[in-house]
Amino acid sequence: MAKKRYIQAINDALFEEMERDPKVILFGEDVELAIMGDTRGLLAKFGRDRIRNTPICEATLTGMAVGAAAAGYRVILHLMFSNFIYTGFDAIANQMGKLRLMTGGQLKLPITVLCGYGGGRSTAAQHSDTPYPVLMNVGGIHVLTPSNAADAKGLLKQAIRGDNPSFFMEASGRGGEMAEVPDGDHLVPFGSAAILREGKDATVVAIGHMVKFALEAADQLAKQGVAVELVDPRTLVPLDEAAIIRSVQKTGHLVVVDEARDRCSAASQIAAVIADKAFGALKGPIKRVTVPNVAMPYAAIAERRLLPNPTSIAEAVTTALAA
């Protein structure tokens, strides 16, 4: 075990997988200079055939990822900010997520898309979205939401080795956070939630960015004698439904914390799954702590009004228990 920054864990995963398999290539905007930090040093090590800057043309980059993957490469596409998923969305939704089915299973598309998501840094409405709900609805793509350095490394390595398109949602602004990362060839399987804290009173499912706030909320609640069980799904597609159901069966209460906007959020999906499959275990209403259906404003004070925080999470748990 060694302590690593989140961004360093991503960088390590890229190095290790590119070294392991010469068919792994990486392209995107400003990846050579590593403006986002995660691709630092790759160019010097692997050269421009395997890592290269592209023009700013997401609609083409996502399609090229499909073509290069169909032709035998393991493609890592860096989309920088997750809002740029929208500009590249045709090839994501119409090609990447469907081509395997449309061809009757003739091909595999080993594509990993990296992008930073989330608000809280005054990057305004077009650089702070949390768009994984739309990805979850496309079908045919995995959605990964690592909340710490160890999971970032393990999920990314798993994605690059996998045979399906995977979106690796980097928690923007969390790159500097340190965590223990297992030594050696650390892989995290998809669809395997982590129970970050055990507790008997309420289940809190927190996604990506929100795990840190949920841990703080759990600390606050512990002081009030409320024992929270914190579940980090780690991947949204596939979703470890069984782990969440098990936890709710134990606690009887569910709060889901998600940085996506409320309407049709990942939290909505998780709430629906539990209402459908574990209704009998619920002793009260499911609560969702999400971003209101408002675009992220620039002003920090206005951003804070929208983003979940430890206090709003703790309040939601209290409300759920009181109902």
């Binding site: 073509g67 119409n94 090609q95």
Partner: peptide, 25 residues
């Protein structure tokens, strides 16, 4: 795929970038 036919495409212009990706490969 065994004949290099990456597919017809229901999206007008959908094949352009896919072909560019295959050409890059």
């Amino acid at each position: 795929l065994s004949k290099g036919i990456l597919g017809a495409n229901g999206i007008v212009g959908g094949g352009l970038a896919i072909a560019a990706g295959a050409a890059f490969a």
